[in-house]
Amino acid sequence: MTEHKSLRAFAAENPALILVLGICPLYASTVDVRAAFAMGCLVLAALLVSGLIMALLKRCIPQQFTLPAAFLVCAGVVSVFELLFHAWFPDIYKILGVYVSALSVNLLLVAAAADSCEQKAEKAIGQALLLGFIFLASLLAVAVIREVFGNASFAGIEIPSLKDYRINVLLQPGGALLIGAFLAAALNAVAAKALSSDSFSGWFGSSFPNAEKEEESES
């Protein structure tokens, strides 16, 4: 069941490719593997910190203020990371550009932060790590395909044998959507084989892998 939970989290409920949440960085930063890795790490760090803060503040935030608080916390956390990123990694920051600031209103971050308000700190951290790594993996998957086949390079290192076979459309936003669609289809195929059909009821409108809720439903 634990294996199914992880697989379900990655395949059937992949926030970037299946649930299509917070996909701006997915398509904006995946032209280069280095930029995708940087963006993924940034999202992971922002998820962790904002999730932890919201979990620690859960007693102070009435339910009707969860979303505004989540927005404020996400905006603050992303701003802090943005300043540090700009100072320490100026080259990558240049590549990512405005999409770093756009993370402040990223649906994935805000939703995860809001969700963390209803959980214990440990669970919030666990959820953030899981989401963050899944998002990072998704970004890297798209970035590798786009850069290798679109630009005949990997992390800035040229691949001479592919130089004449570049598929330029993969470097365009449309190409990113295309890759995302194919990966989503592949994930669906994997999930369909490995999981029962009942497990797919959580597809549309599903919240994130929430261990407490699942345990309640199982019992």
Binding site: L57, C60, I61, P62, Q64, F65, P68, A69, L72, V73, A75, G76, S79, V80, L83
Partner: peptide, 17 residues
């Protein structure tokens, strides 16, 4: 309480930033 929490969040992040 909610409003105070929001104000506090803003104030803390302002100082940190």
């Amino acid at each position: 309480k909610g409003l105070l929490t929001l104000v506090l969040i803003v104030a803390v992040f302002f100082c940190i930033l």
